[in-house]
């Protein structure tokens, strides 16, 4: 990619992104192409990170482990649903992921948790997401009982309209009351430590980046 094009891309993306400044956008673009690797640039071909590459990044850089959540995060990034995260999706996704306001993060997290995308987090979805969250005790008759109970507890806490499922407004209200519930069903945002490390690494001194 030539310099001029890169410059133009940076400008447009910076315009559309409110949490990163131009330099940071440039860094992220560089990182993106670095990650995508030496895919020869061809007209009409989508360049981007596919599901596996992206999950790899989530796992290595942000310490995420839950496969399902990682899939959902990928979906969250991949706005156009074409199976890979392109440059603009990468920038806008990371903007929420790293620096989003509470509102943006809530929206993002809800989308992650709403597995079937119907606008509600149902009991089944919760169960699905929480099923690995408890240590299985061999003594228990029904190993899933704890999970079911946990789902009930969560519903009791968050389901304000008592319809047995979480709408976005339920979720929003609960999170506003207790911010800890933002990632109620699994870590889908970077933890503060890896976030800091990532930023420190990526937004390094510009001189060091020039030769990438």
């Amino acid at each position: 990619m030539n310099r001029k094009k890169l410059q133009k891309l940076t400008d447009t993306l910076t315009k559309n992104c409110k949490h990163f400044n131009k330099f940071e956008v440039q860094c992220l673009i560089n990182l993106f192409y670095n990650l995508v690797g030496d895919v020869t640039e061809r007209q009409g071909m989508v360049t981007g990170l596919d599901r596996n590459a992206f999950r790899n990044i989530l796992h290595m850089t942000f310490g995420m482990t839950d496969d399902m959540i990682m899939d959902r995060v990928f979906r969250g990034f991949d706005k156009d649903n074409d199976g890979c995260v392109n440059v603009s999706e990468w920038i806008s996704g990371l903007s929420v992921f790293l620096r989003g306001t509470l509102e943006e993060k809530m929206k993002y997290c809800f989308e992650v948790f709403d597995l079937n995308g119907d606008g509600f987090i149902s009991k089944e979805e919760m169960f699905h997401m929480l099923k690995n969250s408890l240590l299985k005790q061999p003594s228990e008759e029904d190993p899933d009982e704890g999970i079911k109970d946990l789902v009930e507890i969560t519903l009791k806490k968050m389901d304000h309209d008592h319809d047995g499922k979480l709408s976005f407004s339920d979720y929003e209200q609960a999170v506003r009351e207790e911010t800890l519930l933002l990632e109620a069903f699994g870590p889908c945002l970077p933890d503060p430590k890896s976030e800091m490390e990532f930023e420190a690494q990526v937004f390094k001194d510009p001189n060091e980046f020039n030769d990438i």
Partner: peptide, 15 residues
Amino acid sequence: LKGGNQTATVIALCS
């Protein structure tokens, strides 16, 4: 709290 991962712990704490 004892037997849960981070997610379950947070839910239990909030509850």
